Computed example of a mutant assay.
Amino acid sequence: MPSLTRIANPYLTVDVSSLGAEMQVLETSDGRSWLWNGDAAFWGGRSPILFPIVGKAPDDVLTIEGQSFPMGQHGFARRSEFVLALASATTCRYELASSPATMAVFPFDFLLAVEHTLQGRALTVAAEVTNRDQRAMPFGLGFHPAFLWPLPGAAGQDHVITLDNRGEPGLVRLDSGLISPTKLASPFKAGRLALNHGLFEQDAMIFPEDAGKGLRYGVEGGPTMHFSFENLPNLALWQKPGAPFICIEPWHGTAAEKNGPRELAERPYSLTLPPGEMGRFAFTVEIFA
């Protein structure tokens, strides 16, 4: 059975599971929860880590150097048991090392470490990917946290996402789980997007570029969460239609393009890490209740 590690400070309490190194609880000191509870009637996830791909591969088959490997949506890390490598009052670090099971579907020697750290009213979730192989390793990495919509104390109020850069990033949609080549107009106006459930009737909203390095989600003059992103150039917003949550997903890598290259290294925004090198990706969320 998965185990839980709790970290806490005077402002926040966070529980992290060994299964997927996935955050299970994010509460403020008043006992209010801000993270989705994983009700499987809508969606059983809470804050999965996406590795070694983000999104789908065509026919759920990943191509690496011309070879084919079975790979489900968002990769295998979210369904893998991690090992607790470090735990203190305000930090926990879980690690997933390559194994015969992972090598059968992703033929590289790697180490994926996921660290949750509290500092004041902010939580940072960081992923470090180390290539321990003798050859370059292509991959994608993403975060998929789901937060309550409406936020605590904000029922019946309009919720807004505002980009720090006040940009109007172009939108793409999914076609059978793959990135559609059709580029759509931005739903943001001067960086502002008023949320409504109709936005997600066609699945996720994906912004491959120009969404910037941070955003605010919440109620104007009310509860708000501020996010900042490190080495995560892609942004997706997703809600299971009618569910009381919204996923704010920073990525480095997206699903494969429809009718595009099948090679992992050629997927949009995939990374290729040289032997012995490490890549770091992180988001920080600060809660203003």
Rank of each mutant, 00 (worst) to 15 (best):
E128A: 07
I248F: 05
L35N: 03
L271D: 05
D210W: 11
N234E: 15
V114S: 06
V54W: 13
T182I: 15
F76S: 00
D175V: 11
S29W: 15
F281D: 12
F76W: 03
S33M: 11
E65V: 05
K183A: 15
S228T: 09
E286A: 14
L86D: 15
E266R: 13
F229Y: 13
Q24Y: 11
S186L: 06
S17G: 02
E128K: 07
P274F: 13
E115Y: 03
L12W: 10
L141Q: 12
A126S: 08
S80A: 13
P52K: 00
L148E: 07
N9P: 03
N196R: 01
L96K: 03
G153H: 08
S180I: 08
T5L: 05
S98A: 14
M225E: 06
I287C: 05
M71F: 14
H116Y: 08
T91D: 12
P152K: 00
S228Q: 09
A289P: 15
D59I: 07
H116R: 06
L96G: 00
P48T: 06
R79K: 13
S186T: 13
G222Q: 11
V16G: 10
G177M: 11
W238G: 00
A89V: 09
H116G: 01
A97P: 02
W251V: 03
M225S: 04
I287E: 07
P275F: 08
H144Y: 04
Q157D: 03
P70C: 12
S270D: 01
M71H: 12
Q157L: 15
T130R: 14
K183D: 13
V83C: 05
D158E: 14
N165H: 10
P275E: 12
E95P: 00
D203A: 01
M225A: 08
V219F: 09
P250A: 10
L84N: 05
T90N: 11
H74T: 01
P150H: 02
H226I: 12
T162N: 01
S186F: 09
G222P: 07
W238L: 06
A104S: 15
L148Q: 01
E22M: 08
Q67W: 12
A211R: 01
K56S: 14
P187W: 04
M205T: 01
G191Q: 01
A87M: 09
T124G: 05
I49G: 02
R216Y: 01
D175W: 13
G20T: 00
F76Y: 12
L193W: 02
F82L: 09
G20L: 05
R78D: 01
A282I: 02
G212Y: 01
A185S: 14
T130V: 12
Q202I: 04
D210C: 09
V129T: 06
V129F: 10
A282C: 04
I287K: 06
G156E: 11
L12E: 09
A154R: 05
S98G: 12
P208N: 10
G142L: 14
S29D: 15
A146I: 08
A8N: 10
W34C: 06
G279R: 08
P187M: 02
G191A: 09
D133E: 04
